[in-house]
């Protein structure tokens, strides 16, 4: 499956991913700029924040209200939006083939 990362500074990258991966691991494995993933995928640092392309929000799902993920998104210095997710909390499945996410500027 393919994932598309968009970054205002570094442009667009199309990378291959496998079902069962997390979106963060895909980003790290491909050295995607702007996703340092400091805590290694434990929903503990908020540095894998992405904006899910509006056309994909339903398939990826929104952040659960009151969840740790929501807490981490709101507490991070990057702007939170209704389509914000932490990439480490997005488990990729077949229907995500072609997923487009935008990386917050300056992350």
């Amino acid at each position: 499956m393919q994932i598309i990362f968009r970054n205002a500074e570094a442009g667009e990258r199309i990378v291959m991913a496998s079902e069962g991966d997390t979106l963060m691991h895909v980003a790290l494995a491909n050295d995607i700029i702007g996703i340092p993933g400091d805590c290694g995928g434990q929903c503990a640092c908020g540095t894998c924040h992405v904006y899910v392309d509006p056309a994909w929000v339903e398939r990826v799902g929104r952040v659960e209200p009151g969840s740790t993920e929501e807490t981490m998104i709101f507490g991070a210095p990057v702007d939170a939006r209704p389509n914000s997710r932490l990439a480490c909390q997005v488990n990729l499945i077949a229907i995500h083939d072609g997923l487009i996410v935008e990386i917050p500027e300056g992350q």
């Binding site: 807490t71 507490g75 702007d79």
Partner: peptide
């Protein structure tokens, strides 16, 4: 603790937002 913590912290994140750092 969250959720009060989160609300109050959100109010001050702008000081270290990426545009401020730049």
């Amino acid at each position: 603790d969250p959720p009060v913590h989160t609300e109050k912290r959100k109010n001050v994140t702008a000081v270290v937002a990426p545009r401020s750092l730049a």
